[in-house]
């Protein structure tokens, strides 16, 4: 059992990563109450197993791994088979917008609301969503993401590639539906 001072220091350091864990839990569960339950249980488990944490290593990754493993145990019964992604083929938003004359392409991104991006991320299957959360949102390296999720780096790269294609397709569909771009024709990106 850890000494009280060590336990307090560990808890304090662990709490500096609370926002990362909460965001991850929220994006995985889609429910603030469930996210809080999940994060709370993750912290209690981390405290119980703090002897297995090696000081000086990546605590954020260690905590995230505990949280996401609890998520899979609790919500998915440890079954990590994923809903397959829609087959969007090689969808590259930049090329799609350029082909349709939406120039400058980056202006289209400025018209997309943050809430639509979150919706597009939430629509990704969990095994792909968690890679986007780690690499794109939390800035994990491929190596740290691979260690956190317990998969090879190649799996991180392939999931990330497919997730980004699906994400770009969702954002493109939204841009067409909302009139930001017009499918199949020249597009004038409206200025705000």
């Amino acid at each position: 059992m850890a000494e009280p001072a060590a336990k307090t220091a560990f808890a304090e350091e662990a709490l500096t990563h609370l926002d990362t864990l909460y965001r991850g839990a929220l994006r995985l569960t889609h429910d603030p109450d469930a996210a809080q339950d999940l994060v709370q249980e993750a912290y209690l488990r981390a405290l119980r197993y703090q002897h297995s944490y090696q000081a000086g290593t990546n605590m954020k990754a260690w905590l995230f791994a505990i949280m996401r493993n609890l998520f899979w145990d609790r919500f998915k019964g440890s079954r990590k088979e994923d809903v397959s992604l829609d087959d969007v083929g090689e969808f590259v938003l930049y090329e799609k917008l350029r082909d349709e004359g939406a120039r400058p392409e980056s202006d289209v991104l400025d018209k997309i609301a943050a809430s639509e991006v979150v919706t597009a991320v939430d629509k990704l299957p969990p095994l792909h969503r968690e890679v986007v959360l780690l690499v794109d949102v939390e800035g994990f390296s491929y190596k740290d993401a691979a260690e956190t999720l317990g998969v090879p780096i190649g799996t991180i790269m392939s999931r990330l590639h497919r997730a980004r294609q699906q994400l770009q397709k969702s954002l493109y569909d939204y841009a067409v539906e909302s009139g930001i771009v017009h499918s199949g024709g020249m597009t004038q990106v409206p200025q705000q």
């Binding site: 709490l15 943050a114 991006v117």
Partner: peptide
């Protein structure tokens, strides 16, 4: 865009306080 859209959620203060209490 993906980062800034998704990283604005932060843990509620009451939840943070509750956790700090539990872990101390």
């Amino acid at each position: 865009l993906v980062k800034h859209s998704c990283d604005c959620d932060t843990a509620p203060k009451a939840f943070r306080d509750k956790l700090r209490q539990m872990l101390s």
